[in-house]
Every structure is written in structure tokens, then in C-alpha cells.
């Protein structure tokens, strides 16, 4: 889905590159989480995945299309949807169904087809019943579903989240992620999420750690979060279960560094206490 070769990016008027030699290959249909401290370059990297920013050197291929080639720009943005933190900054229309239709209108889809595709997207996002409502009567979680529906209506191959759940409360955050992941499974979407919530990163097949513009760790969630010392070095904290296992291991308990979920962790601890 995404192939990145030696990507270096420096903002105009600045000397220090924000991204400093990133090479990555992300396969279609995978769920990837990108974590890293504030100002490590996460958002900048996300903006390279749909040609909003273009590399200073190196290249980014999206489904084989070079982001620097202007003839592909619009197609790339159809294929890769980008969702930001604040839904209010992303909504142009003020009525739900018009909002969802905005992107389709931009690529010149006929009105009947717009109706069909936006209805499907509204159902997928679970907000079909809200379609005639005006945007400012919606809650934050509902608004972020509208943004998701708008992206889904364009029938993308990939969705990039730039801290898309940061403004949602925990219950709504879980619901929204479940909607996203089930859409992901249904349409075989590649999902690339930037997050500060380590429990969200646990949902990913692969976790990347970005620090000072470089990918410093890359592996499965279980693998990455077992490297507690390394994570802390980069200003990150492992999720609570992993932190607990690490503390126990440090204190001399015979527990493994990698754990998979609450059940697995309970199993390990109760066995250890039973002396097995």
C-alpha cells in the first residue's frame, strides 16, 4: 500500500529536517500504529501518505503512485483518507448528508451515485438516522463518525488517523474505533493510526516508534511494548499490563516480558502465585 524510501523532509525556512531518512513498507489491509513523543514528526509523516506534503528528498509511493507526480495527487487523496483530531475543523457542510457528499461532489460523481454511496457510508458509520441533522447539534463522537463516513464514501484503500480520537471520551473512543476497524475488515482497508493512547496501539498488527524524525522501533505490539526501557528513553510509557509485567520481572518474579491481553496476564499471574 505504502512504500517509503529514504524520506527526508524539512519545512521551508527551517534547517533541521523533521523526518530524517525513513524507509518503510506497509502492506495492504494491515493495521499500523505510529507512536512517539510530541514533536517527533508523526503528523508530518502522516501528511506524506496522501500527498499533502511532498518529500524534500527520497520518495513516497502510494499503491505504486509517486506522490511527487501531480497527475496522481487527486487519485492518491481518493485512495487515502486522512482524519484529524477536531471534527469541527474538518466539516464544510452543516448538514450530515451534505457533508458526506462533499468529497464525492469534488470528484464529479453523479447525484444518484452520490446518494447511493453516501447512504452506504452513513450506514457503515452507524449514523444513517442522523443524516438530515445539522452538524452543530451533534456530539463530538457523532461528528467524528460523520468525518469517517465522508472518508468511506470516497471508497478509499487506506485511512490515516492523526490522533483522530484525542477529543473523544473513553466510551465513545472505543465505539468509534470499533466502527473504523469493522469498516477496515469489510473493505480490506490499510489503517495507519497516530495515537498517544497506548491501548489503541495494542489494536494494531504492527507498531512503529518515531523519535526525532526516525523510526527507532518496529515490530508487533507485544514485542514493542515489552521493551519498556527503550520506550521510556523515547518519552513513552508502555500500556498498564506491560508496565505491570515489567515491574514484576524487575522485582524478580518469573514472568515473561510479552503479554497478550487481560486473560493471558491473569493466567500468568495466577500460575505464578500457585507456584507452577
Amino acid at each position: 500500500m505504502f512504500t517509503i524510501d529514504e524520506l527526508v523532509f524539512t519545512y521551508p525556512d527551517e534547517n533541521v529536517p523533521v523526518l530524517n531518512g525513513i524507509s518503510l513498507h506497509i502492506s495492504p489491509g494491515s493495521v499500523v500504529a505510529l507512536i512517539g513523543p510530541n514533536a517527533s514528526g508523526k503528523s508530518t509523516l502522516a501528511r506524506h501518505l496522501n500527498a499533502l506534503l511532498l518529500p524534500s528528498s527520497g520518495r513516497v509511493l502510494i499503491e505504486g503512485m509517486d506522490s511527487r507526480d501531480p497527475q496522481y495527487t487527486n487519485l492518491i487523496r481518493q485512495r487515502v483518507g486522512l482524519i484529524f483530531q477536531n471534527p469541527d475543523d474538518q466539516m464544510i457542510g452543516s448538514n450530515v448528508e451534505e457533508e458526506v457528499a462533499f468529497g464525492l461532489g469534488n470528484i464529479g460523481v453523479a447525484p444518484e451515485e452520490i446518494r447511493k454511496r453516501s447512504d452506504e457510508a452513513l450506514r457503515m458509520a452507524g449514523i444513517y438516522d442522523l443524516r438530515t441533522q445539522s452538524a452543530h447539534t451533534l456530539s463530538g463522537g457523532e461528528k467524528q463518525r460523520v468525518v469517517l463516513a465522508e472518508v468511506l464514501a470516497l471508497r478509499p484503500q487506506g485511512i490515516v488517523l492523526d490522533e483522530a480520537t484525542a477529543m473523544l471520551d473513553p466510551v465513545i473512543r472505543q465505539e468509534w474505533l470499533q466502527v473504523l476497524l469493522s469498516a477496515g475488515r469489510k473493505y480490506n482497508l490499510t489503517i495507519f493510526m497516530i495515537t498517544h493512547h497506548m491501548d489503541e496501539a495494542l489494536l494494531a498488527d504492527r507498531v512503529l516508534v518515531l523519535d526525532k524524525g526516525r523510526i527507532v522501533l518496529d515490530g508487533s505490539a507485544a514485542e514493542i511494548f515489552s521493551k519498556v526501557d527503550k520506550l521510556r528513553e523515547y518519552g513513552l510509557e508502555p500500556p498498564p499490563l506491560q508496565a505491570l509485567m515489567y515491574t514484576l520481572a524487575e522485582a524478580g518474579c518469573p514472568v515473561p516480558a510479552e503479554v497478550y491481553g487481560v486473560k493471558n496476564c491473569a493466567e500468568i499471574i495466577s500460575r505464578m502465585l500457585a507456584g507452577e
Partner: peptide
């Protein structure tokens, strides 16, 4: 600035022909 970025993400191109939900 964020709003215009969001519009670019939704394939908005200045000067291009748009269609609407209703005729």
C-alpha cells in the same frame, strides 16, 4: 488552515467542476 487542509484531503481542487447531492 486546518479547514483548507481537510478540504484538500476530500479531493477538493480549485477550479474543478463539482457535482451536488441534489439536482
Amino acid at each position: 488552515e486546518t479547514l483548507s487542509t481537510a478540504m484538500l484531503c476530500r479531493c477538493y481542487q480549485s477550479g474543478a467542476e463539482r457535482t451536488g447531492l441534489r439536482k
